[in-house]
Design a protein around this nucleic acid. Structure first.
Lengths: 339, 339
DNA sequence: ACAGATGCAACAATCGATTGCAACAATTTT
DNA sequence: AAAATTGTTGCAATCGATTGTTGCATCTGT
């Protein structure tokens, strides 16, 4: 009734297992890796022994040796929005899709939520030696850092806007075009006094605002009002409410994101302003959520799932040494109930 | 105008830097770690050199040597629900909070979305040698695996239900009590024919259903109907719709989660059934979303933020060798507009 | 019966750091 | 002036695997 009959002594490394099996560590390593260079019998014997003792080779050591980690870093820089939470539905949605694509290809995911207070935050991540590649979700206000790193570090793909001669590889929607679409749909609904709800320091949002302006100009309408709203969800509703009086005669709102749009609709409802009867609202992103709200959100689709897959496949190309250029997807208006 | 004046040759390891500085690798290591054993001057000199060449020590090697990875695994087992997506808002919300708590303590996060097809999926993760600890989100149908691993692997904390003599440490809400609360609130609203919307193979959901039954029984009502609804969001709406005819005379629905509740309200609205006029609906989780829907969701609060913090602090205790027991939080009814 | 081929396993270098211990010089104490 | 102390640095082992090369049997063909 000794304990070590039921629970065999734990084996800590390949050397202990080798001693137990009466072979060298090299043989054990090859046996566990199912290499054909070891005799089938010994291979079986060693594998059985490993199974019995619940031994699994240390991945840290393996990865150091083979210089391949099979880990991809997924980074969310919270530059201008330190209060913005990782639980922001947009991040989460894209992260979910990235996770699906990466796990399917046998990669692990290292998640970093970074507040870029140190100049070299991105270098630290890419030079850590822990990652085979990096995906960045959102450019935030860190364009410079991305450019700097992209000069020497190839396996990196960023979700965000693409500007003419930028160095880093992005995947994203044509944000300006998207903004324009949202404007056009508001105008088509007969709206004349437009506003953009959201702050515009991040390149993506700035483009969306410009697109909205394009649409207004083309229709001969005045320049849309731009109302700041931070992305931290806890204060957003309050800020939107505070904006209400500044938008006395506004009848069409293009929101910087679906989340902002949802909050806006919510705040308007609280003030007995009906959407879309009194005011039309268009979101941006087409999160799964957008379909579930009541009323369902009219929004601009980013097709996040496809975007995530594109990011991953571009990244794999880059890991393999193939140069890739940025991908810009077409935004699509998803017409639902709010505009 | 040679290139290596502007971009110094890349330094790959501590040895190269040592040669450049004319010292040994040991000294470089100590200098970069800001150890007091090296002369302040040499330390500065080496640090400056490292900065200039953009050199950062390889973390893989460091971690192998010091036997501490400062990486926590966050695992989402998708046992009975392979179709369930990582972008499920509940996972995402708790993941966000976990990420906040962990990054604040200087830990990195390794994210694994696992479909437990292999018997030893959890052992593979905990024995990989890559992690200092593991957080599991949801028990799914993997109770056995969790118990088995908990026997020998200490630094693991699980989000889920606690049953009397289970080995693995959980943090979660008293799901049965929560189910009871949701039942009571439906009954208080005058509802008499109750149903539970959600499948009950996962322990958490099963407990919630039992709690609902408790409430019905205490009020002298018949046993509530249980309607299966998978958690994969793409098919959920359809399934709920299919359930509609089976619930002809139902007037109160306790949903297995906020997501299910939202979808249910949505489907009911599509069928011109008003909530809460015709049917009352209570959710579960109190996701940030629940407050943003129209009508706002009445739900049972899990206080996910606090739960996440608790998980992290229990995990740190366990990493430090301190034994901890499970934590069960009190569910709270959040009364809003749907019941 | 012997040269050459083949199969299998051991040896040892390697990945890139960290760290205990020894060595040496400079300084202080006796 | 010798001994003891202090401050720096180098040396070499170590973390736990992988893998190219070498060596030894055994087998094949002639």
């Amino acid at each position: 009734m000794s304990t070590n009959s039921s629970v065999p002594a734990r084996i800590r490394n390949i050397a202990e297992l080798a001693k137990l099996a009466g072979v060298s560590t090299g043989t054990v390593s090859r046996a566990l890796a199912n290499k054909s260079l070891v005799n089938a019998e010994t291979r079986e014997r060693i594998q059985a022994l490993a199974r019995e003792h619940g031994f699994r080779p240390n991945q840290m050591a393996r990865r150091l040796r083979v210089q391949e980690t099979r880990v991809i870093g997924v980074v969310v820089p919270l530059g201008h929005e330190q209060r913005q939470h990782l639980s922001d539905p947009f991040f989460m949605t894209i992260l979910g899709h990235l996770a699906d694509a990466l796990t399917e290809s046998g990669y692990d995911i290292m998640l970093s939520r970074v507040i870029p207070d140190e100049e070299d935050w991105l270098e630290r991540i890419v030079d850590s030696g822990m990652l085979d590649g990096v995906l960045v979700i959102g450019q935030s206000n860190q364009f410079e850092a991305l450019e700097r790193v992209a000069q020497y570090y190839r396996p990196m793909v960023v979700w965000g806007s693409h500007t003419p001669d930028q160095k880093h590889c992005t995947v994203g929607v044509d944000n300006r075009k998207g903004g324009q679409l949202s404007g056009e749909s508001l105008i088509a609904a007969g709206r004349k006094r437009l506003a953009f709800m959201g702050e515009i320091r991040a390149p993506e949002l700035h483009e969306r605002f410009l697109g909205l302006c394009d649409a207004a100009k083309a229709a001969g309408l005045p320049v849309p009002l731009q109302l700041n709203t931070h992305l931290a969800s806890d204060t957003m509703a309050e800020e939107i409410a505070r904006n209400l009086d500044r938008m006395a005669d506004i009848d069409g709102i293009a929101a910087g994101s679906d989340l902002i749009a949802m909050q806006t609709v919510r705040v308007l409802a609280d003030h007995d302003i009906a959407v879309p009867k009194d005011i039309s609202v268009v979101g941006f992103d087409d999160l799964p959520l957008a379909e579930q709200t009541i009323p369902r959100l009219t929004t601009i689709s980013q097709s996040i799932a496809k975007g995530a897959q594109t990011m991953v496949s571009l990244l794999f190309d880059r890991i393999a040494g193939i140069e890739t250029s940025s991908v810009e997807m077409e935004p699509v208006l998803i017409k639902r109930d709010t505009a």
